[in-house]
Amino acid sequence: MNWTLEVVPVPVTDLDRSKEFYADRVGFTVDLDDEVAPGVRIIQLTPPGSRCSIAMLQGMPAAPGTKVMAPGTLQGLQLCVTDIEAARAKLAGRGVEVSPVRHLGEAGWADGKGGTWNSFLTFEDPDGNGWVVQEAPSELSER
């Protein structure tokens, strides 16, 4: 049996503002924007080339045994790209405040690209949810 990660909830305060950020600025595809039950709205978006989506929810009660995350508390969700500099340019060109490309060196984080698997950038959504973008080898995208 396969266990696939398909949807990650992202806690936000304003669905429309967040939809605009993720769709128009970050470039995710809007898969769903619907009131699925009275008072329950779900917006689901997917990064280009990904099978895993994010979902922003309004009016959805927590599942039994879980807690609802506060907006801005999701940190470290990671996206992978094959060209970190192109990804940074695209995000910055769309108005996203994005960090410089950094790598982990002997003395900690340093500006510039590192070796394979060692180039990163970060950005936050309007609520402060933090994202990490990592450069992955291009041969992995062909799997």
Rank of each mutant, 00 (worst) to 15 (best):
V8H: 00
V8N: 08
V10I: 15
P11I: 06
T13G: 15
D14F: 03
D14A: 07
L15A: 00
D16R: 13
R17I: 11
R17N: 04
S18V: 07
E20G: 01
F21L: 10
F21V: 14
R25G: 06
R25H: 11
V26D: 07
V26T: 10
V26M: 12
V26F: 12
G27W: 09
G27C: 09
V30P: 07
V30H: 04
D31H: 13
L32N: 09
D33G: 05
D34C: 08
D34P: 00
D34K: 12
D34S: 11
E35I: 12
E35V: 15
V36M: 08
P38T: 11
G39V: 08
G39H: 13
V40P: 00
R41K: 07
I42Y: 08
I42Q: 14
I42E: 12
L45G: 12
L45Q: 15
T46C: 00
P47A: 15
P47N: 06
P48L: 11
S50E: 10
S50K: 06
R51E: 14
S53E: 01
I54A: 03
I54Y: 05
I54G: 00
A55E: 09
A55S: 10
A55G: 05
M56R: 06
M56T: 02
L57A: 04
L57V: 08
L57G: 01
M60R: 13
M60E: 04
T66M: 01
T66Q: 00
K67R: 11
V68P: 01
V68R: 08
A70V: 00
A70R: 12
G72A: 01
T73W: 02
Q75W: 06
L77V: 14
L77N: 06
L79Y: 08
T82K: 11
T82V: 13
T82E: 13
D83G: 09
I84S: 04
I84G: 11
A86P: 13
A86I: 09
A86L: 14
A87S: 15
A87R: 14
A87E: 15
A89G: 13
K90G: 01
K90M: 05
L91T: 04
L91H: 04
L91K: 05
G93D: 04
R94S: 13
G95I: 13
V96H: 09
V96I: 10
E97Q: 10
V98D: 05
V98N: 03
V101P: 02
R102T: 14
E106W: 07
A107D: 15
W109F: 14
W109S: 12
A110F: 01
D111S: 07
G112N: 07
G112T: 01
K113Y: 00
K113D: 02
G115I: 05
G115F: 03
W117M: 15
N118Q: 07
N118S: 12
L121S: 09
L121I: 06
T122I: 01
E124L: 03
P126D: 08
D127F: 03
G128R: 02
G128W: 02
N129Q: 08
N129G: 04
G130W: 02
W131N: 01
W131C: 02
V132A: 00
V132T: 03
Q134D: 07
A136K: 09
P137F: 10
P137K: 06
P137H: 07
S138L: 02
L140Y: 12
